[in-house]
C-alpha cells in the first residue's frame, strides 16, 4: 500500500508537469484552433534559461529563492520569445489550413530547439533546484520534495489562470474570441492580441514545466520528448477544456508511474518499458468511449 501511494504521489508530481504543458497546448488551441508543435522547444528554452540564471542569481540571493525567481524570469523570457515568434511567423498564416500552421510550428520547433540545445553544452546542465531529489516523510510515505513543488506550482498557476480568464477583462476577451472570433471582433476584441497572449501564456507554462522536470537530473538534450507525453493528456481531457488538460495531465502521470511500478509484476508479457507508451494506450481507450475526450465539447456539425 505504501508503495502504491508513493507511486501515486510520484505520478501526481510528474502529472503536474504534463498538466502545465497540456494547459499550454489547450490555451493555444482554444484561441487559434491549432495544435502548436513548438511547445517542446519552449519547454527546453525555459529549462536552459533557468539553468543559466540560477547560479547567476545565487550570488545575491539565498538558495531556493534564486531558483524560483529564475524560473519566473525564464518563463517571462520564453513567453516573450513565443510572442515574437507568433507575431512574425504564425500570425501571417491566420485563416490558412490548420495543418499547414501546425507544420510551421514544427519548423519553428526544429530551429529553436537546435539553437537552445547548443547552449546545453556537452554535459547535463544542473538546474540549481535547492532540494535536489531529497525526500520528506508525509504521513509515513517518503515523498520527493520536487514532486510536491510540482503539484504546488500547478495548483498556483492553475488558480492564477482561472482568475485571469474569469476575472480580468482581457481574460473575458480571450474567452469570447475562443467562443466566436468574428463576434468577438465586432465587440472590439483585438483577436491578434488574443493570439499573441495565448502563445505567450503557453510558452511561459512550458518554460516552467521544463524547469520543473529538470529538477531531477538537470537539463539534457532529450528533455523535450516529455512535451510529447502531454499530447495524450490533452486528448484525454478534451482539446478545448482547461480543466480537462489538468486532469488529463495528472491522469497520464499517475498511469505512467503505476504502470512503471507494477507492470513487471502483473503483466510481464507486455514487455519492458510499457510505461512510456501507457499514456497513449489510455488515450485510445478513452477515445473509444468518448470521441471528444473526457471534457471536450462535441463538435456541432451542420450541413
Amino acid at each position: 500500500m505504501t508503495e502504491f501511494l508513493e507511486a501515486l504521489i510520484r505520478g501526481l508530481g510528474i502529472g503536474s508537469v504534463y498538466a502545465l504543458l497540456a494547459l499550454g497546448f489547450v490555451i493555444i488551441y482554444k484561441a487559434t484552433r491549432v495544435v502548436s508543435f513548438a511547445q517542446p522547444a519552449f519547454m527546453l528554452t525555459g529549462a536552459v534559461v533557468t539553468s543559466y540564471l540560477t547560479p547567476a542569481l545565487g550570488f545575491v540571493l539565498v538558495t531556493g529563492l534564486s531558483f524560483f525567481l529564475s524560473v519566473a524570469a525564464a518563463a517571462i523570457v520564453t513567453a516573450l520569445l513565443a510572442l515574437v515568434l507568433e507575431r512574425v511567423l504564425v500570425r501571417p498564416m491566420v485563416g490558412r489550413a490548420v495543418f499547414v500552421i501546425a507544420i510551421i510550428t514544427l519548423g519553428i520547433d526544429i530551429a529553436v530547439r537546435t539553437v537552445v540545445t547548443g547552449y546545453i553544452g556537452i554535459g547535463a546542465r544542473p538546474i540549481g533546484f535547492p532540494w535536489g531529489i531529497e525526500t520528506i516523510q508525509v504521513l509515513g510515505l517518503s515523498v520527493q520534495i520536487r514532486h510536491l513543488v510540482m503539484m504546488g506550482t500547478v495548483a498556483l498557476l492553475g488558480g492564477l489562470l482561472y482568475l485571469f480568464f474569469q476575472r480580468t477583462p482581457f481574460g473575458l476577451a480571450m474567452r469570447a474570441a475562443a467562443f466566436d472570433q468574428e463576434a468577438a471582433m465586432t465587440q472590439g476584441v483585438s483577436v491578434g492580441a488574443v493570439f499573441g497572449t495565448s502563445w505567450a501564456l503557453a510558452g511561459g507554462l512550458a518554460a516552467v514545466a521544463g524547469a520543473l522536470v529538470s529538477t531531477g537530473a538537470g537539463v539534457d538534450r532529450q528533455l523535450w520528448v516529455i512535451a510529447l507525453i502531454a499530447l495524450p493528456a490533452i486528448i484525454l481531457g478534451g482539446l478545448d477544456s482547461l480543466g480537462g488538460a489538468v486532469i488529463g495531465g495528472l491522469a497520464v502521470g499517475v498511469v505512467e508511474q503505476l504502470v512503471g511500478s507494477y507492470q513487471r509484476d502483473y503483466a510481464p508479457w507486455l514487455g519492458d518499458n510499457v510505461a512510456t507508451v501507457a499514456p497513449y494506450a489510455l488515450m485510445l481507450l478513452v477515445l473509444l468511449v468518448r470521441p471528444y475526450g473526457l471534457f471536450g465539447t462535441p463538435e456541432v456539425r451542420r450541413v
Partner: peptide, 18 residues
C-alpha cells in the same frame, strides 16, 4: 475528426514503435 484524429494516429506511432 480533425486534430483528435491526428493525435490518436500519433499514438499509433508510439505504440508501434514500442
Amino acid at each position: 475528426r480533425g486534430l483528435y484524429l491526428a493525435i490518436v494516429t500519433l499514438g499509433l506511432v508510439f505504440l508501434g514503435e514500442h
